[in-house]
Design a protein around this nucleic acid. Structure first.
Lengths: 248, 248
DNA sequence: CCAAAAGTGTTAAGCATACACCCATGC
DNA sequence: GCATGGGTGTATGCTTAACACTTTTGG
């Protein structure tokens, strides 16, 4: 319940809050993608002033009858045609002068998508490009900060739950999974230790087919075990372990 | 940069965004306090309809010329007289119908304060009460959810950085610190293991004075080492270790 | 036959856990 | 002198980290 000066709860009683105080609210999306080689970020180039030519995240104003989560989903849907994209609210940026046009509060979300699964047409229509995380250019407004915050959050999250669900195709190889984690943490892991750790979690199922695209020998395909995360199929001890998943 | 339908960047060019789409924005504060015995939550009782008698978080509408962080600080300042309270943005709640009076987006913050350091007058003026975390009553709107989210975030945060800074007085005893962590995680720790872990982090300085209030024998007072967290005074190895602080 | 990527085991060190008794003091 | 809370050490198992070679196969 909102309370404004004087800091008395009686002020909350008005049937409508002060319309003078309404603020423009936007959603901005940090879109991470993985193409089995590198973790990438989708950026959009402004075609007009101000900031013409600058790279930017994609966003939209929030209408009064749309929730924040819906707003973010819609951006992703219009862009990718995908409905069930993973979206996580990152943080809300509320500095008064962050947008020179007008005071805008922006709620940032980040999403994880499989690059191969959506067509590049939509991307090209928007003058967009995938960037390696290392090559992210300067972004307009506070979007650079948003991206930094999103990467930090992604890393934090990746040690608590296996993100492969969202970023990898249904069937994937252990080398791919390793590359994904190496991209996220910008480091290298020992393949023996990586496999040992991942397999000990009992969240993967090995298939008997191989992916031959990455090497001559081929690499076995795995899939994530459904329900491996809701705990119902696990003892307590295993579940506790899971919470510390992937702490290399 | 905000973009609204049509999803074209050219729409961003307007000098002013559509004023029809402005939304009422509020800040709500989850206030955690510690009194050397239990971790508590400060709640406020509504005196008027709607929701008369319900317990609630404290909040305020955000004015167009005030940042979110400032808005949250001001609430805390008016309430406690303290200027440098720890405040962390938790999450933004944006469901369309979360407030029956009007569509309001609420940015939730949580703060950590030392209960003993501010006067209860301010609290009593607001018909407020400290609740043990276990006894939190039903709250109005989605405030209950906010509190649950804040507790989860607090626990997550407490394993990455020592929160004692914010919740304990400058000088404190190890038993107090242990009780604090036990409150946060709602569990018990072995005192030998707890001390070993905490002291191995090199973030505490022992003083040669004792606090005699808790026992006949008295317990040595400690303080947090300044700069123990900015990494400058530490080797890389130690800093890495710190990032995993307090993972009981 | 060789280049390129996939796959595999062992050891040592560090960390977390479990556990029980003495100490200092006020009353 | 006893009740109360403060303070201490050790042994065990587990997790992590470091490390190098063999396998498969397409070209």
């Amino acid at each position: 319940m909102v309370i404004n000066p004087p800091l008395k709860q009686s002020s909350v009683l008005r049937s409508k809050y002060d319309p003078q105080q309404r603020i423009t609210v936007a959603v901005d999306c940090i879109i991470f993608g993985f193409d089995s080689e590198k973790l990438k970020l989708l950026l959009f180039r402004r075609k007009v002033e101000p900031f013409k030519g600058s790279w930017s995240l994609i966003g939209a104003l929030i209408k009064n009858d749309v929730s924040l989560d819906q707003g973010a989903s819609e951006i992703l849907y219009r862009l990718t045609g995908l409905r069930d994209v993973y979206l996580k609210q990152l943080k809300t940026y509320g500095a008064v002068n962050r947008d020179p046009v007008e005071r805008v509060i922006s709620v940032a979300y980040y999403s994880l998508i499989r690059i191969n699964e959506f067509d590049l047409k939509a991307v090209e229509d928007h003058d967009a490009r995938w960037f390696d995380l290392k090559d992210v250019p300067d972004l307009l407004l506070d979007h650079g900060r948003m991206v930094q915050d999103a990467i930090r959050s992604l890393r934090l999250m990746a040690r608590n739950r296996p993100l492969g669900f969202e970023l990898l195709p249904q069937l994937f190889t252990l080398p791919q999974l390793q590359i994904l984690y190496e991209s996220i943490y910008d480091t290298k892991f020992d393949p023996r230790n990586f496999r040992k750790k991942i397999l000990s979690l009992n969240i993967l199922e090995k298939t008997d087919t191989k992916d031959m695209s990455g090497s001559k020998r081929g690499a076995f395909l795995y899939r994530f075990r459904k329900n491996s995360l809701d705990g119902s199929s696990m003892s307590n001890g295993e579940f506790e372990k899971l919470k510390e998943v992937i702490q290399f």
